[in-house]
Amino acid sequence: MISRQDVEHVARLARLALTDAEKERMEAELSSILEYIDKLRALDVEGVEPTSHAVPLVNVMRDDEVRPCLPAGAMLANAPDRAGDSVRVPRIIED
């Protein structure tokens, strides 16, 4: 079951500010999702390798070759704020 603390913890990790009403809703919705996944536990998976990819593919690699980049301006156009060629973000100093 998902507790109120679990919801708050996950929300903080995802940098989401939830209202009390939203927290309540999430608590219920996430719990029911987990309950559904719990049904999978009933399956016998003895000897079955955990699956990370559904396609039977391995070793997809490319040669070490340089390809054109985005022009700096195009990339910076997505930034909310910039200073010269740099993206400008609010003060992030851990203290």
């Binding site: 200073a83 060629d85 740099s86 993206v87 400008r88 973000v89 609010p90 003060r91 100093i93």
Partner: peptide
């Protein structure tokens, strides 16, 4: 990340 200005007074960081 480079802090804009001095560490103590920085208001923003610049990202490359």
């Amino acid at each position: 990340l480079v802090h804009e200005g001095a560490f103590e007074t920085a208001q923003a960081s610049l990202v490359d």
